[in-house]
Protein backbone atom coordinates (compact mmCIF):
# COMPACT_ATOMS: atom_id res chain seq x y z
CA UNK A 1 0.00 0.00 0.00
CA UNK A 2 2.80 2.38 0.77
CA UNK A 3 4.01 1.62 -2.73
CA UNK A 4 0.61 2.06 -4.21
CA UNK A 5 0.39 5.57 -2.85
CA UNK A 6 3.95 6.49 -3.70
CA UNK A 7 2.72 9.81 -5.06
CA UNK A 8 0.06 10.58 -2.52
CA UNK A 9 -2.62 12.75 -4.08
CA UNK A 10 -2.57 15.47 -1.49
CA UNK A 11 -2.47 19.24 -1.85
CA UNK A 12 1.05 20.56 -2.15
CA UNK A 13 4.03 20.92 -4.42
CA UNK A 14 5.66 17.96 -6.13
CA UNK A 15 8.80 17.62 -8.20
CA UNK A 16 10.84 20.64 -9.23
CA UNK A 17 10.46 23.25 -6.51
CA UNK A 18 11.75 26.51 -8.00
CA UNK A 19 9.56 29.04 -9.76
CA UNK A 20 5.98 28.77 -10.83
CA UNK A 21 4.75 25.19 -11.22
CA UNK A 22 4.54 23.89 -14.77
CA UNK A 23 1.32 22.09 -13.98
CA UNK A 24 -1.46 23.03 -11.58
CA UNK A 25 -3.85 20.25 -10.81
CA UNK A 26 -7.14 20.25 -8.94
CA UNK A 27 -9.71 17.59 -8.35
CA UNK A 28 -13.29 18.77 -8.81
CA UNK A 29 -15.82 16.97 -6.66
CA UNK A 30 -19.56 16.98 -6.04
CA UNK A 31 -20.71 16.68 -9.62
CA UNK A 32 -23.36 14.62 -11.30
CA UNK A 33 -22.46 12.74 -14.40
CA UNK A 34 -24.61 10.62 -16.67
CA UNK A 35 -24.20 8.74 -19.92
CA UNK A 36 -26.88 9.79 -22.36
CA UNK A 37 -27.23 7.49 -25.37
CA UNK A 38 -29.66 8.35 -28.13
CA UNK A 39 -32.13 5.66 -29.09
CA UNK A 40 -31.96 4.16 -32.55
CA UNK A 41 -32.17 6.93 -35.18
CA UNK A 42 -33.13 9.44 -32.44
CA UNK A 43 -29.95 11.54 -32.10
CA UNK A 44 -31.55 14.63 -33.63
CA UNK A 45 -34.67 14.31 -31.50
CA UNK A 46 -32.53 13.79 -28.40
CA UNK A 47 -30.58 16.93 -29.25
CA UNK A 48 -33.80 18.87 -29.68
CA UNK A 49 -35.05 17.60 -26.34
CA UNK A 50 -31.86 18.77 -24.69
CA UNK A 51 -32.20 22.14 -26.34
CA UNK A 52 -35.66 22.50 -24.83
CA UNK A 53 -34.69 21.28 -21.37
CA UNK A 54 -31.15 22.59 -20.93
CA UNK A 55 -30.82 25.34 -23.51
CA UNK A 56 -28.11 23.63 -25.50
CA UNK A 57 -27.85 21.00 -28.16
CA UNK A 58 -25.48 18.11 -27.45
CA UNK A 59 -22.69 18.16 -30.05
CA UNK A 60 -22.67 15.70 -32.96
CA UNK A 61 -18.84 15.86 -33.18
CA UNK A 62 -16.12 15.75 -30.50
CA UNK A 63 -16.93 18.96 -28.62
CA UNK A 64 -18.61 20.26 -25.50
CA UNK A 65 -21.85 22.20 -25.30
CA UNK A 66 -22.66 24.09 -22.13
CA UNK A 67 -26.29 24.63 -21.25
CA UNK A 68 -27.94 25.85 -18.13
CA UNK A 69 -27.05 23.45 -15.32
CA UNK A 70 -25.41 20.89 -17.62
CA UNK A 71 -22.52 20.55 -20.01
CA UNK A 72 -22.71 17.87 -22.70
CA UNK A 73 -19.43 16.20 -23.52
CA UNK A 74 -19.34 14.22 -26.74
CA UNK A 75 -18.46 10.60 -26.06
CA UNK A 76 -19.26 8.83 -29.32
CA UNK A 77 -21.87 9.03 -32.04
CA UNK A 78 -25.19 9.66 -30.31
CA UNK A 79 -23.48 9.30 -26.95
CA UNK A 80 -22.77 12.11 -24.48
CA UNK A 81 -21.69 12.60 -20.92
CA UNK A 82 -23.89 15.12 -19.13
CA UNK A 83 -21.90 16.88 -16.42
CA UNK A 84 -23.23 19.30 -13.87
CA UNK A 85 -22.99 20.34 -10.24
CA UNK A 86 -24.20 17.92 -7.61
CA UNK A 87 -27.94 18.20 -7.24
CA UNK A 88 -30.36 16.45 -5.00
CA UNK A 89 -32.69 14.05 -6.70
CA UNK A 90 -31.80 11.21 -8.99
CA UNK A 91 -29.96 12.32 -12.09
CA UNK A 92 -31.49 9.52 -14.12
CA UNK A 93 -35.00 10.69 -13.30
CA UNK A 94 -34.26 14.33 -14.13
CA UNK A 95 -32.54 13.60 -17.42
CA UNK A 96 -34.86 10.74 -18.22
CA UNK A 97 -37.82 13.08 -18.11
CA UNK A 98 -36.08 15.54 -20.40
CA UNK A 99 -35.05 12.98 -23.00
CA UNK A 100 -38.19 10.84 -22.88
CA UNK A 101 -38.08 8.05 -25.44
CA UNK A 102 -35.29 9.72 -27.40
CA UNK A 103 -32.38 8.59 -25.24
CA UNK A 104 -31.44 6.27 -22.40
CA UNK A 105 -29.78 7.75 -19.34
CA UNK A 106 -27.29 6.03 -17.04
CA UNK A 107 -26.06 7.57 -13.80
CA UNK A 108 -22.25 7.69 -13.80
CA UNK A 109 -21.75 10.16 -10.96
CA UNK A 110 -19.66 7.72 -8.95
CA UNK A 111 -17.66 6.29 -11.81
CA UNK A 112 -15.13 8.97 -12.58
CA UNK A 113 -12.59 11.32 -11.07
CA UNK A 114 -12.64 14.82 -12.58
CA UNK A 115 -9.44 16.85 -12.76
CA UNK A 116 -8.68 20.34 -13.94
CA UNK A 117 -5.19 20.89 -15.36
CA UNK A 118 -3.56 24.19 -16.18
CA UNK A 119 -0.13 25.73 -16.25
CA UNK A 120 2.50 26.61 -18.84
CA UNK A 121 3.65 23.00 -19.24
CA UNK A 122 0.24 21.32 -19.15
CA UNK A 123 0.52 20.43 -22.86
CA UNK A 124 3.98 18.97 -22.42
CA UNK A 125 2.86 16.87 -19.46
CA UNK A 126 -0.15 15.47 -21.31
CA UNK A 127 1.96 14.74 -24.41
CA UNK A 128 3.94 12.26 -22.33
CA UNK A 129 1.02 9.89 -22.33
CA UNK A 130 -1.46 11.14 -24.91
CA UNK A 131 -0.97 10.58 -28.60
CA UNK A 132 -3.41 13.24 -29.77
CA UNK A 133 -2.26 16.62 -31.05
CA UNK A 134 -2.92 19.32 -28.44
CA UNK A 135 -1.37 22.18 -30.41
CA UNK A 136 -3.76 25.18 -30.49
CA UNK A 137 -4.12 24.74 -34.25
CA UNK A 138 -5.41 21.20 -33.70
CA UNK A 139 -7.25 21.26 -30.35
CA UNK A 140 -9.10 24.32 -29.15
CA UNK A 141 -11.30 25.47 -26.31
CA UNK A 142 -14.51 23.47 -26.53
CA UNK A 143 -12.87 20.48 -28.24
CA UNK A 144 -13.16 17.01 -26.72
CA UNK A 145 -11.00 13.95 -27.14
CA UNK A 146 -12.10 10.52 -26.03
CA UNK A 147 -8.71 8.88 -25.93
CA UNK A 148 -6.13 7.28 -23.68
CA UNK A 149 -3.65 8.81 -21.29
CA UNK A 150 -0.84 6.50 -20.25
CA UNK A 151 -2.94 3.61 -21.61
CA UNK A 152 -6.00 4.61 -19.56
CA UNK A 153 -9.29 5.66 -21.12
CA UNK A 154 -10.06 9.34 -20.51
CA UNK A 155 -12.22 12.18 -21.70
CA UNK A 156 -10.21 15.36 -22.14
CA UNK A 157 -11.60 18.73 -23.09
CA UNK A 158 -10.26 22.23 -23.18
CA UNK A 159 -12.13 24.89 -21.24
CA UNK A 160 -9.88 27.93 -21.80
CA UNK A 161 -7.19 29.04 -24.24
CA UNK A 162 -4.59 29.43 -21.51
CA UNK A 163 -4.86 26.34 -21.88
CA UNK A 164 -7.04 24.86 -19.16
CA UNK A 165 -8.11 21.26 -19.53
CA UNK A 166 -10.56 19.02 -17.78
CA UNK A 167 -10.08 15.32 -17.65
CA UNK A 168 -12.34 12.49 -16.59
CA UNK A 169 -10.81 9.15 -15.69
CA UNK A 170 -12.39 5.98 -14.40
CA UNK A 171 -12.23 6.00 -10.60
CA UNK A 172 -10.48 2.68 -10.08
CA UNK A 173 -7.75 3.65 -12.58
CA UNK A 174 -7.15 7.04 -11.00
CA UNK A 175 -4.15 6.00 -8.92
CA UNK A 176 -2.28 4.76 -11.98
CA UNK A 177 -3.14 7.91 -13.91
CA UNK A 178 -1.95 10.06 -11.04
CA UNK A 179 1.35 8.19 -10.77
CA UNK A 180 1.96 8.88 -14.44
CA UNK A 181 0.91 12.54 -14.17
CA UNK A 182 3.08 13.10 -11.12
CA UNK A 183 6.10 11.47 -12.75
CA UNK A 184 5.54 13.37 -15.99
CA UNK A 185 5.07 16.75 -14.34
CA UNK A 186 7.96 16.34 -11.89
CA UNK A 187 10.56 18.04 -14.07
CA UNK A 188 8.38 21.16 -14.40
CA UNK A 189 7.04 21.18 -10.85
CA UNK A 190 3.44 20.29 -10.04
CA UNK A 191 1.10 22.07 -7.65
CA UNK A 192 -1.86 20.07 -6.39
CA UNK A 193 -4.65 22.32 -5.11
CA UNK A 194 -7.18 21.25 -2.52
CA UNK A 195 -10.26 19.66 -4.11
CA UNK A 196 -13.06 22.04 -4.95
CA UNK A 197 -16.74 21.50 -5.68
CA UNK A 198 -17.50 21.29 -9.36
CA UNK A 199 -18.43 24.46 -11.20
CA UNK A 200 -18.52 25.02 -14.91
CA UNK A 201 -15.39 26.83 -16.03
CA UNK A 202 -15.38 30.59 -15.98
CA UNK A 203 -12.33 32.37 -17.32
Amino acid sequence: MADALHFAFNPGRLGHREGAPGLVLQELTQFTLASVIACKDQAAQAAAAAQRAFGTSPPMAPATAAGNALTFIWSGPGHWLALGPHATGAVEARLGTAFGTHASVFDQSGSRVLLELRGPRARDVLAKGMSIDLHPRAFRTGDVAVTTASHLAVHLWQVADEPVYRLLVVRTWFDSLWRWLAASAAEYGCEVLAPAPYASHTA
Partner: peptide
Protein backbone atom coordinates in the same frame (compact mmCIF):
# COMPACT_ATOMS: atom_id res chain seq x y z
CA UNK B 1 -14.60 8.36 -38.66
CA UNK B 2 -15.80 9.71 -35.30
CA UNK B 3 -12.65 10.74 -33.43
CA UNK B 4 -10.13 11.47 -36.20
CA UNK B 5 -6.79 9.75 -36.81
CA UNK B 6 -5.64 7.78 -33.77
CA UNK B 7 -2.69 5.55 -33.04
CA UNK B 8 -3.41 1.84 -33.34
CA UNK B 9 -2.77 1.29 -29.61
CA UNK B 10 -6.28 2.69 -29.02
CA UNK B 11 -7.86 -0.05 -31.10
Amino acid sequence: PHCGPRTHEEF
